[in-house]
Design a binder for these strands. Structure first.
Lengths: 301, 301
DNA sequence: ACCTCGTTCGGCGGAAATGCAGAATAAGGG
DNA sequence: CCCTTATTCTGCATTTCCGCCGAACGAGGT
């Protein structure tokens, strides 16, 4: 056998019944499948398929070969499993950091799973509003929301968009009515930010959205702003990720374009290629992909 | 596993203990082996070898992988065996032709083996001095000695050189002395050719090698010329392939440059890609390679 | 009867894998 | 102690492979 990988293509074509279908399942081009089958037949000097307009059909010899190729595949799968187990016995320690809401919604649920898959990798999580300096070794991995983080000594990867919009308590809406567009914000009470939070695009947008808005409260954390909104103090700009999870809150209108942020995965440069960090990142990215629609808000429209 | 063929390289490197040795055993470049191992380690995120100046040494994980890769290999070998059996169950009929001496020395011994390997391929051999016209369908395959055959409607492949030299009977040498160079041929009795045989380079060379040579016999076949030489009638120009097999004959001097011929394999164009003909040709070429040194004469000088 | 969908096949350009040559560096033998 | 041999790694040139596109062609449905 000149190239064992031909067998992988053979299996796919045999099972799909066409080179096109096989190509889809393998994530390659149809032409590639056809060529590899041709190569296999040429080197083995055995016709394995009948070419038809309707697809590739196994010959008798091909059918006999199929069961043997399946055995090869079985052994390869076993090997892959062992390799996976090998990786999962990776050990090491790493420090991750993020803010409270991302921790609650994303990181902590992920950690539960991760711990099962990689029991020997110890993850220490620091939940803080402060932006730890990865380049200085304060942590290895961070999940950050907002604008693109500075990238000195770290690798940065954008995960998804985090839409924002204006929320108010359902109770507030009953009493004062909820605005349905930017134009109706005028006259409403709004909840503002303090310190870093005041600089967030969404928070500033709300304060400047209309003349005559009264800032009834200022807080230095989104958690606190959320609490204020729940208490019915007024309108608050919040990430949908947070606002949508509060049953007491409602969106005033769909996510406002331009005030959203992004979710960023940041990794310390030196830690990046370390095997157990790598394993952590791979798993995390997979998990983030799985929950992306949740993060981006189901009604992003 | 992105590419099953990586496993083949992994096995080779693990067994050879170095990428260089593995490359030799696989017939590829050392760089290729090194790169495929690197790719395998990258996709599996597992270090399989320790790189040392003295070579590649398996890590513990690599050693664990080795036994599993060997299992994959075992299945591949089984598959290859089945494929071979598949080919050997090829059936069909083909006609081969050649002259008597090549038949005796090459084709017939080969046929005995071939019949065992491919019991369902029926080979009909026509042994004749006449040159059958393959293009007209008189045969499918021919082994020809001499000058390059004409190639209309056929594929021609050169197998090896067929050296010629001058022979005489050992008995003759005792009685008259054997010439040790072209210069000493003068005065000896020589055995000439008739018809086609007279045109063969070696035969003509002997007759024209020296003035005053007496042609004591002429025959239309090399078999007959050989018999004449064995009988001690005089010198004969013969292919070493024939002359060396006659215990009663001896070489007068080393093979004469310029009078030798070549052995040619000729195949009818239309028959060339037919599976059972292909199988015959592949086996024949392998056999010819194995006996080439015999054909070219051990003391070719 | 015609149209659409799924498929195979060929040609072409770009990308990726491969081979080649040279430098660097241990290990082993004289 | 030095020289030879075997090995790995790097940069560059080339070959091979792969993906894209369009044409051709049946089959099945309307």
């Amino acid at each position: 056998m000149r190239d064992w990988d031909d067998l992988r293509h053979f299996l796919a074509v045999a099972r799909a019944g066409s080179t096109l279908g096989a190509a889809r399942s393998l994530g390659v081009n149809q032409t590639t499948c056809a060529r590899r089958i041709a190569a296999l037949e040429a080197t083995t000097r055995t016709q394995l398929f009948e070419r038809r307009r309707a697809g590739y059909r196994l010959t008798e010899a091909g059918a006999r070969l199929l069961v043997l190729a399946a055995r090869v595949e079985r052994e390869v799968r076993a090997l892959e499993g062992a390799l996976e187990a090998e990786r999962r016995m990776l050990s090491g320690r790493l420090r991750a950091t993020t803010n409270e809401s991302i921790a609650n919604d994303v990181l902590t649920p992920f950690l539960a799973r991760f711990r099962e898959a990689y029991p020997r990798i110890r993850v220490e999580v620091t939940i803080t509003d402060r932006t730890l300096e990865l380049a200085r070794g304060e942590a290895d991995v961070a999940l950050r929301a907002g604008r693109q983080p500075e990238a000195v000594g770290v690798a940065v990867r954008r995960i998804c968009h985090l839409p924002w919009t204006i929320y108010c308590a359902r109770d507030y809406a009953l009493r004062h009515g909820a605005p349905t567009s930017q134009a109706e914000i005028a006259g409403h009470a709004v909840i503002g930010g303090e310190g870093n939070v005041a600089d967030i695009a969404g928070v500033r947008w709300l304060e400047e959205a209309a003349p005559g808005t009264e800032v009834v409260s200022r807080s230095g954390s989104l958690t606190n702003m959320t609490a204020a909104a729940v208490a019915g103090l007024g309108l608050a700009a919040l990430p949908c990720m947070i606002g949508d999870r509060e049953p007491a809150l409602q969106r005033c209108f769909p996510p406002v374009p331009g005030i959203g942020g992004d979710l960023w995965l940041v990794v310390r440069e030196e830690a990046r290629e370390v095997p157990h960090v790598r394993a952590f990142l791979d798993s995390l990215v997979a998990h983030l992909g799985a929950v992306r629609s949740m993060l981006e808000g189901s009604a992003t429209g």
